[in-house]
Design a protein around this nucleic acid. Sequence first.
DNA 1: AAGTGGTCTAGACCACCGA
DNA 2: CGGTGGTCTAGACCACTTA
Lengths: 257, 257
Amino acid sequence: MDYSAVDAFPAIHDPATAPGDGPPAGQARWASIAASLRSRIATGEFPAGDPLPSEAALASAYGVALGTMRAALQSLVQAGLIERRHGKGTFVRSGIGSGSLSRFFRWGASGELPDARVVSVKEVAAGVEAARALGLGVHAPVLRLVRLRTRAGRPLLHERICLPLERFARLATLAPGEFPPLLYPFYARRCGVTVHRALDDLAFERLAPRIAQSLELPAGHPAIRVTRLAFDLAGRAVEHRITLGNAEDVHDRAEVR
Amino acid sequence: MDYSAVDAFPAIHDPATAPGDGPPAGQARWASIAASLRSRIATGEFPAGDPLPSEAALASAYGVALGTMRAALQSLVQAGLIERRHGKGTFVRSGIGSGSLSRFFRWGASGELPDARVVSVKEVAAGVEAARALGLGVHAPVLRLVRLRTRAGRPLLHERICLPLERFARLATLAPGEFPPLLYPFYARRCGVTVHRALDDLAFERLAPRIAQSLELPAGHPAIRVTRLAFDLAGRAVEHRITLGNAEDVHDRAEVR
DNA sequence: AAGTGGTCTAGACCACCGA
DNA sequence: CGGTGGTCTAGACCACTTA
C-alpha cells in the first residue's frame, strides 16, 4: 500500500467566482472554500493555535452568505483541522497530542503517562517498508530513532521511528538525550512539521530476541505491533513508526455501525 | 461499567412549540426534533428500510423552517440512524450488517466470508459479566448460544452469545441447526429487535483448553478476545458476545486525530 | 457593550431520480 | 415531468466570552 498521497488537497480557490459564473468545477461553493482555507492553513498563513477571522469576515471576503461559509467551516471541523468555540472564535488545531498511542494499551487510560526516552539516532537508508509508506526511494536517507517508553523504570514499549532526512535535517545532529518526551510538538518547533493525523495499524507479532531483551521479556513473547503513518497538514506522510509492546497490555475499543 | 443505558433518548417532542414559547429546555429546536424522530423510529412508526416523509413535509409538520429540519436530519445521519439519497429520499437504516466482526481479523478484508454455525443453545443464568453488560440481575435468564465460524472446514472463531430471554424467548425452542449464518437480521425478523450499533472491546488472552480444542489450537495459544455489546434503536443493550480467535489473524486500523 | 459562534427563517434555484 | 435532497441567500435573534 502507498499512503504517501492520502489526504492531499490542491488549492482550488477563487473568491471572486459568483454562484452563476461559469462551471462550478463539480464542486459546491462551500467545498472549494473549504479547500482554499485548508491550503491556507497548510502553508502557514493561519498558524496552528491561532484564530481564523470571524465567520462574518470570511464570508464577506469570499463573497458568500454566512450559511455557506458556515458549511465550509463545518467541513473543516469534521476533518479535524479547526475547532470552534462559542463566543471566542475559530481556531486552527495544533497537531495531535500525546496519549494517542495509549489508545491501544491498557495502562494508557488511567494513571500517569509513561516516560519516553530516545536511545539512538542514526542516519540510514529508508528500507522497503518505510520507503513505501513515506513515498520515498528505498535508498533515500532517513533519520531512524529508537525510543523506549518506560514506567517506574520498567520498559513498556519499543519504538522505531523513520523520518525523511530532507524535512528533518535539523534533528540529525542531536544526541539522543536532546529529544524531549513529546516528539510531535518538537517536530513543529524545530522543523516546522505539524503532525495533523495518523493511521495506526495493529497486528500480532512475536518478539525478536534483541527487542525482547530491551523490553525485559523472553524472546518469542506475544507482542502487539502498531505501525503508524503520520501526516502533516498538507496530507504528506512525514513519519513512519513501529511500536512493539507486550500483548498482555493491549486493549482497544471500537464502535460498530 | 454499566452500558445498559448508553444512548437512551427520551421522547422529548412537541411540534406545536414555537421559537419563543416558554423555555427551550436547554435544547435547540433541531435537537428536540431529532430526539422526537429518533423515538418515532425506535418505536417502529418508521420501520427500518422505509423512507421518512420528505424534509419539506416534516418541516411543515413540526412547524419549522427547512433549514432547521435539515439540521435535525443531519444529526440523525451522523448518529447512523438514517441515510439520505439525493433525489430519492431519507431512509431508516437497517441494522448493522455482517462482516462487522471482520474488522479485527486479517482474513475478513478479502476473500469470502467464513461460515457461521451455531453449535449449542442453552437457557442459563446470566452470570456476572453478561448481567452487568446487559443491565440484568446475575440470575436473570438468558439464552446462551455457542457459535463457530469456519472457513474451508477449519475453525477460525469461537463465539459465546448471551441474549436476554425476555426479548428473545422465541429463539429458546430452536435447535442449533435452525439458526441462519446472519444473526442480526434473524433477531429482527423473529424477535423484532433491530441491532443498530455495537461496542467492540479487544483484549489479549490465552486459550482455555476446551476452547483451544474447538479451534484446533494448543491450549494456552495466544488469542484475541473481542467482547461485543450490541444495542437496539432505543439504545438498550440487547446482546453480549465474546469472540475468541487466533491472535496471529488479528488486525486493526484506526485513525488518530 | 462589543464580538464571537449557534440557531432559525422564508424563501430561491440546482442536481438527481424515477415514472 | 414532479418529487426528492443539496446548495445558497440575506437577513434576524440568541447565547457565550471578554473587557
